[in-house]
Design a binder for these strands. Structure first.
Lengths: 126, 126
DNA sequence: CCTTTGTGCAACTCTGTGGTTGCACTTTAT
DNA sequence: ATAAAGTGCAACCACAGAGTTGCACAAAGG
């Protein structure tokens, strides 16, 4: 079942299994923030299914201006989800989904906290 | 290793394994949006580690006003991550992390797309 | 060389959101 | 009954984000 990025059932490079809960503000902010916009998720999916593309091409498939799409791409790029490569006079954007592991990491840590809380409740004298 | 919510290695109630990529706008927007704020993630973690609490109590542990905290709690609640219960004159907030499964669902779907793309590249004649 | 196509930059508008303050209302306690 | 503690609502401000338009600059192509 594929091998691309390391966030499958097995490993999920969870950063700091303990000492978590420190919120790790910086990265997760921009990451979750980038994913919070449907247009941006759409762009990511498009780039994954149809392969790398330029801002102008992507703009043609949306009701948005090239500039608007460009801004979205830049948001995604600063979140680490994209990178670009200049070809001739065009700039081709490509998905680099490694940061997603961080998101899953936080979520799984949170899920663990929840589980621990449940356990604690279970251990209470009825 | 606990049982709380169903997003562990095994199942991850992935909604629509195919037909994904439809972006499912609504819910994921508010969900990722809610998680995009460090204060809100902090509040979730606090509520999980120290158990349910009121807005006023939570406000004491932050540099924020009760009103600000209140707004954050409401954002989290409309994202489905919290619910509240009125006790006497107080309102107690509690974490309900089930929606997190949706977030992981999208991420895993995206990871799958990535994997498929890798596979496609591998199958190309060198 | 001149036209086309694509990108880069900047200014501007509009709306949403984080945060505040102020006050009214309800519940508990003295 | 009255004071204290807690919540609810509304107005307000400041700033960031989404989106637009306009124009200048770089690369291909005739």
């Amino acid at each position: 079942m594929a091998t691309g990025i390391a966030l499958h059932r097995a490993g999920v490079s969870r950063p700091s299994t303990r000492a978590a809960v420190t919120t790790d503000s910086g990265a997760l902010d921009t990451l979750f923030g980038a994913l919070a916009d449907p247009t941006r998720r759409l762009l990511v999916e498009r780039l994954l299914t149809k392969g790398p593309a330029t801002a102008t091409v992507l703009a043609e498939t949306t009701p948005l201006t090239r500039q608007a799409v460009l801004k979205h791409l830049q948001v995604l790029e600063t979140a680490g989800l994209l990178d670009h490569e200049r070809v001739g006079r065009e700039v081709r954007y490509r998905v680099t989904p490694q940061p997603l592991a961080a998101a899953v990491g936080w979520i799984l840590d949170t899920a663990d906290l929840w589980d621990k809380r449940i356990d604690r409740l279970r251990r209470l004298p009825t």
